[in-house]
Nucleic acid binder design. Structure first.
Length: 505
DNA sequence: TTCCGACAGTGGGGTCGCAAT
DNA sequence: ATTGCGACCCCACTATCGGAA
């Protein structure tokens, strides 16, 4: 198949807003693809490469060479070119990569070049990713969408099950959880408070799990072989030797566990997320401790489809309490709230409320698991704004946030945010910050537009973290706009000292 | 007819490994 | 030794479509 087929399809998909039309367009090349190219076609239609990493990003693309007049590249040739790129390493590899990228782009038409640049930087932006490709696969093969989805979740992606979809429903049904092959992890939706979360999770008795602020781990054990995968199914076994030892010692020969790994201080309280993420923490003698909250397989039996209560009972029989996520089962909101307070007092992020009857829905973010985290707010001042991209093209989008300096002179930047803005707010702030621009004539000429520090904005955030990037030594974590405050002047905004004090720094 | 679940997009800060400087 | 880049860790939120209620 020619790459041009993929590119045409991508353009068609991008040109319609109807999801049904997108799916119909995706189904055509999927039905045309030969057995030897189906995997590549599935990946490319979803805007991704089969290579996990190529070593080339937006910077390594360079300026585009003269495009070809006629399309000639096949998907096979493109795949081979990326395989070559991915294999380059060592001294001089950057120059070799640049040359290989230029060679590939030089063989592409102008439209193919656009698509190739998109797929390399992860910016195809056609309004369809893996989920719609799965729908297209179901449409093209005649297999039920539910069977395609389930197989993809259990196989860790759509690519590995594409051929099975064309082999019929029974072939898809045979795809099941295999010890040693990571499945997509179940995700949690969110709710503002525990009461709402309990209602969302189905009411009645629920499990309230402590939400630990570390790295999600899925651990597969087959005899002495242990594999640890992250949320995106990256294998990080070598980085967590303590976890490997702990799982090897568990009294079962084959198992799949889901949990969280985090670094603890000497007093047992969790260290900041940054220290869990850092290997320096391990190097400094800080161990990373695993806490497991689910069991997906045990000695030949897949537990995914069993109710939560049953899986967790099996987990409790297998894993000692010191390596299980603290939790309580209750239907009483007051008891749940009390558990949340305890979790927060112990320094944890919050809780995850879980239905006791729901199965483990791999790869889904449903209402069976609902997270609850406390929200803090600050009143900060907008110091600059950045022009948006994509659907925010032409709007001033990302705002720079500052707290009042402690010496009363000026503002200290603490971070940026683009979150929480409605289209109405984007329109308003584009006008407002154009008015406040330090250099009104230059507003459209620069990506970053500095403004007079006069607009106060209420910002929600999860907390602060250590920063070497920002002058105050701290940065906001997960900042988002709540509302613009026209009832407050900049000299009423929060100070750096207040911010540090609020978060115990 | 209205409601709501699922998706895609729009980006945030920090950390590592690796290659170039 | 330092710097820049790519890749990945954590992630919130809004708009939209289309099926469910």
């Amino acid at each position: 198949m020619l790459l041009a087929r993929i590119v045409e399809t991508s353009q068609t998909v991008a040109a319609t807003r109807s999801r049904k039309a997108k799916v119909a367009a995706l189904a055509v090349p999927l039905a045309e693809a030969g057995p030897g190219e189906l995997e590549v076609v599935v990946a490319y239609l979803g805007g991704s490469l089969l290579q996990r990493r190529t070593g080339v990003g937006w910077r390594g693309l360079g300026s585009p060479p003269e495009p070809a007049d006629e399309p000639s590249l096949t998907v096979h040739e493109v795949h081979a070119a990326f395989e070559h790129l991915a294999g380059l390493s060592g001294s001089g590899s950057q120059a070799a990569r640049a040359a290989a990228v230029q060679d590939l782009l030089g063989r592409a038409t102008a439209e193919e070049q656009v698509w190739l640049r998109g797929v390399i930087t992860g910016n195809v932006r056609q309004g369809a990713l893996d989920a719609l490709v799965q729908e297209g696969l179901a449409a093209a093969s005649g297999a039920p969408l539910s069977a395609v989805r389930r197989a993809a979740m259990l196989a860790g992606g759509t690519v590995p099950i594409a051929r099975a979809a064309f082999s019929g429903e029974s072939a898809l049904a045979e795809v099941c959880l295999e010890v040693g092959r990571p499945v997509l992890p179940m995700l949690a939706s969110s709710a503002p408070d525990v009461g709402a979360a309990m209602a969302k999770a189905g009411g009645g008795a629920v499990s309230i799990d402590t939400k630990l602020d570390g790295i999600r781990i899925q651990v597969h054990k087959d005899g002495d072989d242990v594999v640890i995968a992250t949320r995106s199914l990256d294998v990080i076994t070598d980085r967590l030797p303590e976890v490997v030892d702990i799982v090897r010692a568990l009294p079962a020969s084959r198992l799949v566990l889901d949990g969280e790994a985090l670094a603890l201080a000497d007093d047992g309280r969790p260290r900041p997320f940054q220290e869990t993420a850092s290997r320096t923490a391990m190097g400094a003698g800080v161990t990373v401790t695993p806490y497991f909250f689910d069991l997906l397989h045990l000695d030949g039996t897949n537990l995914l489809d069993r109710p939560g209560a049953e899986r967790w009972a099996a987990l409790a029989d297998l894993v000692p309490a010191e390596h299980r996520t603290p939790s309580v089962t209750t239907s009483d909101v007051a008891e749940a709230e009390s558990f949340v307070r305890t979790a927060l007092d112990l320094g944890h992020e919050g809780v995850v409320v879980k239905s006791v009857s729901a199965p483990y829905d791999a790869g889904r973010r449903g209402s069976a698991w609902v997270k609850v985290k406390p929200v803090h707010t600050l009143d900060l001042v907008v110091l600059a704004v950045e022009w948006g991209s994509g659907r925010r093209e032409g709007w001033l989008s990302n705002i720079h946030l500052g707290a009042r300096a402690d010496d009363g002179d000026g503002f200290v930047m603490l971070g940026k945010t683009f979150k929480g803005m409605t289209d109405e707010m984007l329109a308003w702030q584009t006008g407002r910050f154009t008015e406040l621009a330090l250099e009104p004539a230059e507003v459209k000429a620069h990506h970053v537009v500095p403004v007079r520090p006069e607009q106060v904005v209420e910002i929600a955030l999860d907390g602060i973290q250590r920063s070497t990037r920002y002058p105050g030594g701290i940065a906001l974590r997960f900042a988002r706009v709540v509302r613009y405050r026209d009832d407050k002047s900049p000299d009423e905004a929060d100070t750096l000292a207040t911010v540090k004090e609020m978060f115990g720094g």
